[in-house]
Amino acid sequence: MLEYLLAFLIIAGGAFTFIGSLGLARLRDFYSRLHGPTKATTLGVGCVLIASAVYFSRGEAASFHEILITLFLFITAPVSAHLMAKAALHLKLASLAERPEPRERD
């Protein structure tokens, strides 16, 4: 039973990691490319790390190292994505979206 859960988590992690990088390689502008790695890849690595935590907890002692790495990744991924988006806006990279209408002043 545990073996099936582990295999599922490992394959799901690999698949999500692959989908994230596929998005990074295939999407057409920077702002949409930002979505792939920051969401799908983080989820994939989270799956792999949880699989590793379960795998190394089957003996006598529970293993918490992976939880630490998972927490760290889940905290830092949005921060770095925000900084990259800010840098891209600062450099005025081309976007596929239309420019927003200028706001009317009352």
Partner: peptide, 8 residues
């Protein structure tokens, strides 16, 4: 992305 993949 490369370093996150390396962790995996």
């Amino acid at each position: 992305t490369l370093y996150v993949n390396t962790i995996a």
